[in-house]
Simulated scan of single mutants.
Amino acid sequence: MQATAKDLRFHSKELLNTVKRGEEVVITYRGKPCAKLVPIEEEKKTSPETNELFGIWNDNAQAENVENYIRTVRKGRFNAN
């Protein structure tokens, strides 16, 4: 669908409803296309079971005691000297 900049100004609600239905709206200015309104794709939330990086440190022996591991990694950066 095409609409002019004037249509966008005065009929924005109707154009947004058109986009909400899944259509694309090309906005023209002085007869030339200058913008496109498209529906936003919903982000799919990943669950831990489907995320391949979840549990990446599960088998790492260093991560058994996370607090000690982090302290060791940060050692020297946060000295109070």
Rank of each mutant, 00 (worst) to 15 (best):
I40S: 10
C34E: 09
C34H: 12
E24W: 07
K36R: 15
S47C: 07
T46W: 04
E41N: 05
A35D: 05
V26Y: 03
P48I: 12
V19H: 03
S12H: 09
F10S: 05
R21E: 14
R9E: 06
V38W: 04
E42W: 02
H11T: 00
P33V: 05
R30W: 06
E41K: 08
E23D: 12
E24T: 11
I27H: 07
L16T: 03
V26I: 08
P48K: 08
E42A: 11
K20I: 07
R9I: 06
K45W: 06
V38N: 06
T46Q: 09
G22R: 05
T46N: 09
E23Y: 15
P33H: 05
L37N: 01
T46E: 08
L16I: 05
R21K: 14
K44A: 09
R21Y: 11
K44I: 14
P33I: 06
T28V: 03
T28P: 09
Y29D: 04
E41M: 04
H11S: 02
H11N: 09
H11A: 01
N17F: 05
I40Y: 13
V38P: 00
F10E: 12
V25K: 13
I27E: 03
R30F: 15
N17M: 06
T18K: 12
K32V: 15
P48G: 07
G31F: 09
E23S: 12
L15H: 08
T18A: 12
R9C: 02
V19D: 00
E43I: 15
E43P: 06
E43W: 13
R9M: 07
P33F: 01
Y29V: 13
T18V: 11
F10A: 01
L37S: 02
E23T: 11
